[in-house]
Nucleic acid binder design. Structure first.
Lengths: 232, 232
DNA sequence: CTAGACTCTTGATAAATATCAAGTCATAAC
DNA sequence: GTTATGACTTGATATTTATCAAGAGTCTAG
């Protein structure tokens, strides 16, 4: 069976150290699927039948309550999502939809749990992955509770700026409606927040961001390793 | 060595299935300590030298940024806290302080990581614990992003009411200043939020809450398994 | 018992954020 | 080309939440 995508994930930290037979058992029942944009992959509340791994594209994790919807995160290759639900055999807490044409691997949750019980290296890798995810959500919670919306935007821009290698001009990776939801504000207020950041050397043209005064922006945003550094 | 507290945690899900020798290795360097109220146990940013287990008392997890402080959670016996930092060998993301006189077990992080690498059952237990914690934070994030402060309070009361067995009258387990921070609002607005909930059959007298109309309160609060049920 | 500290509440006001209603601009459809 | 459609912005306004100031009540140290 030639499944290059499956071989590709073998090198992910989550799968790199596991035994060959475990990897084989894990991927035997796997699907690789291509989805067009705006397809709902997962609906919150449903049982977690598959662990998802995004190989190509862009996926939004979102949640709903009482007719309100918010974006929780966007996921880019190569990463897994909804690992905790798979492990706990619980319902999904978030829904997921493709934002772009995306290629996704689906591993049956049952297989993930079985292999997890029989391959210590895999269990260890899952621990590290989950700990990372956990710390990510804690940081995002701190961001929400300790900062105003303009401060959240400023720090988001600084982070993106960093990921993209500190170029003078860079592109937003999400449309502004979703960015607003991700940052916990309305699209209208996102527009106004961008305007406010104009005072600190941020210029916006469509999805293009120009940062002319890193110093002022940092002074205002006060980025912190314990909130904004997703690698620590 | 007679250390009844250590034996006590042996039955916790996190330690129940591990080998005796692993448990022995894990607890050999453990401390059991009593702390008075309002002692800072952990400061965010410090290296995670110990995994903490609260045996008695009450501990607040909080975070700071730019001279603002917020309560992230309160922890009651018997639970661990700061597991993810221990595993990742990363800095603490939250600070911790005792709220009451508390008894705490400290397990050296190094031992936790060593045993975690050598005892598959322990690794599996950590996975389940971390998955649980992760889902807890995701729920709390949804709570913050999707609900207004009054809605958060209403759902908090319904949850506490449930934990305490649905008595007509029950006690808040945290002082109101901290409850406000936990729910992401100011103490002043917590007072006003309680008043608003008076319209839905909630009466407050100090720390004592009287719920006279469960139906109205539920109608207003719209509790959801995917946000408020911490066991799923 | 009393002074002081503390928690909590209340009222007045300010700031932050959301909503509603147009309007602009670009793109896609016909 | 013209007409929709959608994304974004802007202004006016409303709602939510925070801040500031003061007062009521409770607890505790002396």
């Amino acid at each position: 069976m030639a499944r290059p995508e499956i071989e590709e994930i073998r090198e992910l930290p989550l799968f790199a150290d596991m035994r060959d037979e475990s990897f084989e058992a894990l991927t035997r029942g796997a699907y690789v699927q291509n989805f067009p944009p705006l397809i709902e992959l997962i609906r919150e509340g449903d049982p977690a039948d598959f662990l998802h791994i995004i190989i190509e594209g862009n996926v939004e994790l979102f949640a709903e309550w009482n007719n309100r919807e918010t974006t929780m995160a966007t996921v880019r290759p190569i990463s897994t999502f909804i690992l905790a639900a798979t492990i706990k055999d619980g319902p999904y807490l978030m829904s997921a939809r493709t934002l772009e044409k995306s290629r996704i691997i689906l591993l049956p949750s049952l297989d993930v749990r079985t292999v997890f019980e029989n391959d210590a290296k895999f269990a260890q890798a899952i621990v590290l992955e989950l700990a990372q995810c956990y710390r990510g959500v804690v940081k995002s919670s701190k961001n929400l509770k300790l900062r105003t919306s303009v401060e959240r935007l400023a720090n988001y821009l600084i982070r993106q700026h960093g990921y993209q290698g500190h170029p003078e001009v860079f592109q937003l990776q999400v449309d502004k409606k979703r960015l607003a939801a991700l940052l916990g504000m309305t699209p209208e207020n996102l527009s106004r927040a961008f305007k406010t950041l104009g005072n600190y050397g941020v210029a916006v043209d469509g999805a293009q961001i120009h940062i002319s005064n890193t110093h002022d922006l940092h002074q205002f945003a006060k980025p912190s390793k314990l909130i904004d550094d997703y690698s620590c």
